[in-house]
Design a protein around this nucleic acid. Sequence first.
DNA 1: TATGAATGAGCATTCATTCAT
DNA 2: TATGAATGAATGCTCATTCAT
Lengths: 195, 195, 195, 195
Amino acid sequence: MDGFQRRKALKKTKILKAALDLFKAHGVQKVSVAEIANKANVSQVTIYNYFESKDKLMEETIIYYVDQAWLEAEELLSSDVSFPEKIKLLIFNKKEAASNIHEDFYLYFMKEYSNGSSYIEEFYEKKAIPKMVELFNEGRKKGFVDPEISNEAIMFYIYMIKEYMQREDVYDKILPYTEDITKLLFYGIAGDRKK
Amino acid sequence: MDGFQRRKALKKTKILKAALDLFKAHGVQKVSVAEIANKANVSQVTIYNYFESKDKLMEETIIYYVDQAWLEAEELLSSDVSFPEKIKLLIFNKKEAASNIHEDFYLYFMKEYSNGSSYIEEFYEKKAIPKMVELFNEGRKKGFVDPEISNEAIMFYIYMIKEYMQREDVYDKILPYTEDITKLLFYGIAGDRKK
Amino acid sequence: MDGFQRRKALKKTKILKAALDLFKAHGVQKVSVAEIANKANVSQVTIYNYFESKDKLMEETIIYYVDQAWLEAEELLSSDVSFPEKIKLLIFNKKEAASNIHEDFYLYFMKEYSNGSSYIEEFYEKKAIPKMVELFNEGRKKGFVDPEISNEAIMFYIYMIKEYMQREDVYDKILPYTEDITKLLFYGIAGDRKK
Amino acid sequence: MDGFQRRKALKKTKILKAALDLFKAHGVQKVSVAEIANKANVSQVTIYNYFESKDKLMEETIIYYVDQAWLEAEELLSSDVSFPEKIKLLIFNKKEAASNIHEDFYLYFMKEYSNGSSYIEEFYEKKAIPKMVELFNEGRKKGFVDPEISNEAIMFYIYMIKEYMQREDVYDKILPYTEDITKLLFYGIAGDRKK
DNA sequence: TATGAATGAGCATTCATTCAT
DNA sequence: TATGAATGAATGCTCATTCAT
């Protein structure tokens, strides 16, 4: 990558960062291209030169965000803590890049995901899901996970909780019940019947 | 209620219905007052006469929606099926008014709820929560519910799943895992360890 | 005037009063027909039944106002005070119906006057001007008024000052200079050179 | 000022000119931003880019107008004519930028003035008033001005007449009485009693 | 006669996008 | 490449006026 391209990439990142910050804070719909340009200290047209349209910018912002978030998640998954702890951190760890996402942005993110936008789709298929499956298998080996439950269902479950926790209005309300939620995740509403 | 008022109420309902349909389908922000007026076959101004502003219209639309949804939920809760079946239906019953809500509308709904808008808040406090608590207590009596888990946590859990299922992009994907999800809800990822 | 007509007249007056109050307070342009209807406790349509249009309502409101103001002015002019005192009161007497008129209303009033709307025109010609001329002649007889100055010019002068004083933004600022203004009116910027 | 800025300033002036013309002719409230845009041959949005809002545009238009009017007034005041002639010209000189202002615009102008909008306020304090005081002092030295009358009162008087003359409906009617008005200004309704 | 309901036309303002340099 | 300037289209909202009872 020569100087030109490096500078170009830098500027792109600057724009993506600005966009991500604003999208996270106020949602996609409420943020105008002008605001992003302003925050990134570039002209609106520069944004169009790099990203074609607000829609495309949003797509790339999501990709940028996914990449960042994945770095954090991967670190956690590869770390040396017990299975239950991993699960708990995965769900409640507020440090993650995702923290305090404006719901509106999350929606766009999820839509992107389910729309089959190749990058996100591939990211899940090639990176996120395998790593999670690996985690569950580890959990099964250690007796934490019911062998009869499909990985898909568990994943759905975990993403669901995680996502729910991201919501501004939910997190604080639910924090006091962290223990209960964890218990529910592991043993369901019927409780640990072995005890 | 005389003829005048009846007609007024009818028109109001017509507008609310149109608004609800459109909000559900495309979200609040993407639907213009003009579109609602069009769909309801009234003039924009009539909407303003009845509802003051788009914001207020949205509030009333949410109330209208909650009322409708509650009718269905209450029927289910009062019906003569077993506890597990009730829970399952509560979560997966697609017949409910809520079906296929555009996420954006849901966001507004939840914001309304957490903002302490009196009607919704009161609705939960006075109607929804008591009925749910009653359900859980019944479940506990019959041994389906861990006595150590708080009602709040369970409710959070159920609403979370329910809400998640409402999402256009999720429902179809998750349907095949209905059984697994139900199991997870009841026994968690550890599975029914009593078996 | 039978009961019907009396009630009709009463309602008309009620509307005119409401309109006048609002016009005075906020100007003609900022007051909507709905507000007038509201303040007068009648329906908008009733206003249209009586006055045809907002424009016509305004015309009649002005007439109503002129009639009221004239009553006060006439009383003053017919009273038993000296010529200079009369002039002074005429100009500075804040009690008059006109007090604290929103400028915007005054504009409409003056436009009406200069447009040759028959009533106002006639009012001036038949009532106001003759009375003023009478006053000036009395003033001339007593040596207060230069015989060489035309009545028209004096009238213009007095109306001008009076009108200027009506303006919200002017009255308070100018009050401290009341004496100076009066002197200027009587002796001009050159001052009383006889002294 | 480079080419960019020059063109920008030019366009701004073009808009201000259009706005001033329209405001003068029909008043502020009756003129829509669209009309101004049309007359200035720019898009509405351009106006918003330059002036933020209709209100701000109006403020700047007033400033623009004051500046223009002052240029003419200053020239007159610095010219080599007698004191009485200066006063007369000041009042009756129709050439001035102010000519035939719609009253509504004048209201906004005066409101601006009395609201303490810094520019106009400062303009009066630093420029207009000192120059006028200078004029009066000159008049006093030459025996045209009563030493006992305050500058404030005289200024009030002159502005009042000037303003009154600006009004569309007044000027033509009053023109025949120019001489009388001037006499009244100098000697009051009592007349020049020295004669 | 009186009125609640309804409306077409208009307004200030915002925004994603393109033009011209 | 980068940008200041410009814009068409749309939006929420208001108002004087008319309809229908």
